[in-house]
Amino acid sequence: MRFLGKAAGGLYLLLLYLFVAGPLLFVIATSFNPATSFPAPFEGLTLSWYAAILRRPEFLSAAGTSAVVAALAAALAVVVAFLAAYALSRNGSSSARGAMATLLASPLLVPQVVISLAILQLASAWGVGTGFWGLVAAHAVYVMPFALRLLLTGLARFDFAVEEASRSLGGGWLSTWREVTLPLLRPSIVAGFTFCFILSFVNLPLSLFLTSPDTATLPIVMFAYIESRIDPMIAAVASVIVLAAGTATILLDRFLHVRLVD
């Protein structure tokens, strides 16, 4: 009986993992398939689709654009989220904190295409172009709530008495933040930044109305590519993104692990 229960639990876990990771595995497998259409039966193993990426400069420059946009948007989002989370955790009743946190999370409730369109309209109403910074702003607005959630969780475990200890020992506001507050919250800040970066990097709908040929992000270029044809090169691009994001996540976990447990 006991064995059957364990086996059933194991099977459930296996199915769950397959459900989550299955499509990903399929995409990665496809990227090695020499067949020129997709999906198609396996015909062997090749790295030619990865080589093909290198022959398409628009993918490489779009990856660069995406990385810069994601870094700036994540940095902006983390700064705003940190200030909001800090103020919410330090002051106010827990009910007010909940209400404010929900309000700050509201960008999640608006379809991303709508945020993109709204920023485009606002910019043209003001008579300014959206350009690169409009794109960054849209991404920052959307990813900010994720950083907020992580920082609120981090701050919930933060004992504000250590700030008072620092001040009683002669530390001003700046030194206290530099020496005590920020180092203790570093895991949440790093995790928030990484999470925001990845979310921004792979995001398509936010960029739909805000990119020009100069500022095309990687998802936009991928989208344009598969509109004209579908071949496994797009799977190769996706595999590279998965590999990079996966590596970042693992490094982060190790980094946090080292940080949190000595």
């Binding site: 200890a165 620092s166 001040r167 002669g170 530390g171």
Partner: peptide
């Protein structure tokens, strides 16, 4: 920070990311 008053907290409020020596030396470092 300008009162020169030493404070011992109920929760101790030691800096968890600093060693004992760094904790004790913090005020002099400041």
């Amino acid at each position: 920070q300008q009162r020169d008053i030493g404070l011992v907290f109920q929760s101790y409020a030691l800096f968890p990311h600093k060693t004992v020596a760094e904790n004790i030396g913090f005020g002099l470092k400041m």
